[in-house]
Design a binder for these strands. Structure first.
Length: 523
RNA sequence: GAUUCGGUAGCUCAGUUGGUAGAGCAUCUCCCUUUUAAGGAGAGGGUCCAGGGUUCGAGCCCCUGCCGAGUCACCA
């Protein structure tokens, strides 16, 4: 029987450059140098700070200690230039043989630095900062230690006159080996720093308003809160199936029932659906629920928060996104669903029945399925004729009731719910509504969903009896919102694909180079 | 899912009508004490994604598969 015994393609052979590095590793050990030392290396400065603040007149930064990855070596005999990269970027080093080797023994320079250190190695240096003849801010190295040996060749990217040579651009390699991508592509590091700032800004903003950050289950016996197909998993001890959450809405509302009046969660949600440049199977949603508020209040809140986020991340509310400048400055435009459709099609559909709507759709060249009801048709017309116009942040309000089984019926308009979505750069940014807190109405809406499920709608919601019980105890009037963090980050970082704002986007597993050995048949 | 494009050296990419596999950077040897895509002299390095087929001969043509990207459709 053939048994897979090894997944390690390294056992086969090393490339020339890998072998060179392993030989260097051995030579380093033979010099009595530990290539992976454990002692702390105390850093007292960073590259960006030095480049910004070094002043030759002031003679500052004369005793710096920096650590980072060696990114470039330019050896010129008895002196050399190199570059190291720390968390903030790169800075040049000047390494002089007789200064790092003050005695007769020049091994540290001639052997270790010139021959055994490779691009990618982590090193620590101490020295003084100066400007070279050409004006480059440089650390004149007096001490140099190896902190960690790199055994694989790193892509070497050079730049001249703004043009890059040898860029590491293959998307598959970049996503699979994000550590390499982050190392050699500065703009990738910046994207994820911005993502962190987006989340931090939102969290600060909500905490400052007095709202409570909570955590709710990812493993759920009944999934709910959105229309989507779930992932299923199994718990061994309980011997039962669970679903990975598709949304955290129903749990957060239970907390409002329990007496918190503002709760939010940054939640990884999971939807078992197609992948595209806008969709990853797991993605991050921020949901916030605030008691005693309605959706008008939430629109004001959303504008204020996202304007704040833009300022925190970019220092301005005007962002370059693709070919457009997008402004997050308040106030944003607001249209009802009927208004925006009239605006872009010239047709007032507010009083139309299904038959009339079908005629409008046909007229507007919006393809429809026979199964679509009135609400779905309106949604299609909007998606086809309006959505792609919405570049600047825009609120669309008052959605058809059938599309929103968890939203409260509109206070004055028949057949609508108190719901809004904000659109930006042609895509939905968030979804919010005055929450349905009438338990009898909610039960009827769930029952309609169950009926849809029986008819074969795989995205229909399940009836959550415990959630209904919670509502029966009474939930105050509440407004809730969900903001797609990945989509928001795409806008905030001017990224064209969701994969560019996910550190580890979902991909098919890499094919291991499997070594198969023929073994004896084992019973 | 549909459709188009791609996979060649460690990285980025050329590769003509089918005829010995190429460049820059990286790597190796030597020279070089303020360079910066450092420079000079030399050298090595390839399962051309995989498996079939056509052919005297395939990186190139045909088929199948794998992986990725773009566009379109649907969910955030």
């Amino acid at each position: 029987m053939a048994v897979i015994t090894k997944y390690d393609d390294r056992t086969m052979s090393y490339s020339e450059q890998e072998q060179v590095r392993r030989d260097a590793l051995q030579s380093i050990k033979e010099l009595g140098i530990n290539p992976y030392p454990s002692e702390e290396f105390q850093v007292n400065a960073y590259s960006a700070e030095i480049r910004e603040k070094f002043d030759p007149e002031a003679q500052n930064y004369q005793e710096v200690a920096l650590a980072g990855r060696l990114m470039m070596k330019r050896i010129m005999g008895k002196a050399s230039f190199a570059e190291i990269q720390d968390k903030d970027g790169k800075i040049q080093l000047y390494v002089n043989r007789d200064e790092i080797c003050s005695g007769e023994d020049k091994t540290l320079y001639n052997q270790l630095f010139k021959k055994l250190l490779d691009i990618g190695d982590f090193i620590g240096v101490k020295g003084r900062v100066f400007h070279t003849k050409t004006g480059e801010t440089t650390v004149h190295v007096t001490e140099l230690v190896l902190l960690s040996k790199c055994l694989r060749p790193l892509p070497v990217i050079k730049e001249k006159d703004g043009e890059l040579y040898g860029s590491f651009t293959d998307p598959e390699l970049r996503y699979r080996q994000r550590y390499v991508d982050l190392t050699v592509n500065a703009h990738v590091r910046e994207t994820f720093i911005k993502r962190s700032k987006v989340v931090a800004a939102m969290r600060n903003f909500m905490v400052s308003k007095g709202y409570l950050e909570v955590e709710t289950p990812i493993l759920q016996p009944i999934y709910g809160g959105a229309s989507a197909r779930p992932f299923k998993t199994h718990h061994n001890t309980l011997d039962m199936d669970f679903y990975l959450r598709i949304a955290n809405e129903l749990y957060l509302k239970r907390l409002i029932v329990g007496g918190f009046d503002g709760v939010f969660e940054f939640a990884k949600d999971f939807r078992n659906e197609g992948m595209s440049r806008f969709h990853n199977p797991e993605f991050t949603m921020m949901e916030l629920y605030v008691a005693y508020k309605d959706y008008y209040w939430m629109m004001d809140f959303t504008e204020e928060m996202l304007e704040y986020v833009a300022m925190e991340v970019h220092g301005t509310t005007e962002l370059q996104v693709g070919e457009n400048i997008i402004s997050f400055k308040r106030p944003w435009k607001r249209y009802t669903m009927y208004e925006v459709i009239e605006h872009y099609t010239g047709v007032d559909i507010s009083e139309m029945d299904e038959e009339a709507l079908r005629a409008v759709a046909k007229d507007q060249k919006v393809p429809l399925e026979p199964s679509m009801a009135r609400g779905k048709i309106i949604d299609e017309i909007f998606s086809e004729r309006c959505e792609h116009h919405l570049i600047q942040p825009t609120f669309i309000t008052d959605y058809p009731l059938e599309m929103s089984p968890l939203a409260k019926k509109h206070r004055s308009a028949e057949g609508l719910v108190e719901r809004f979505e904000a659109f930006c750069n042609k895509k939905e940014l968030c979804n919010a509504f005055s929450e349905l807190n009438d338990p009898i109405d909610q039960r009827e809406r769930f029952e309609e969903q169950v009926a849809l499920g029986i008819r074969g709608d795989e995205e229909a919601m399940m009836l959550d009896e415990d959630f209904l019980r919670a509502l029966e105890y009474g939930m105050p009037p509440t407004c809730g919102i969900g903001i797609g963090i990945d989509r928001l980050c795409m806008v905030m970082t001017n990224s064209n694909s969701i994969q560019d704002v996910l550190l580890f986007p979902q991909m098919k597993p890499e094919q291991p180079k499997v070594v198969v050995e023929e073994n004896e048949e084992v019973e």
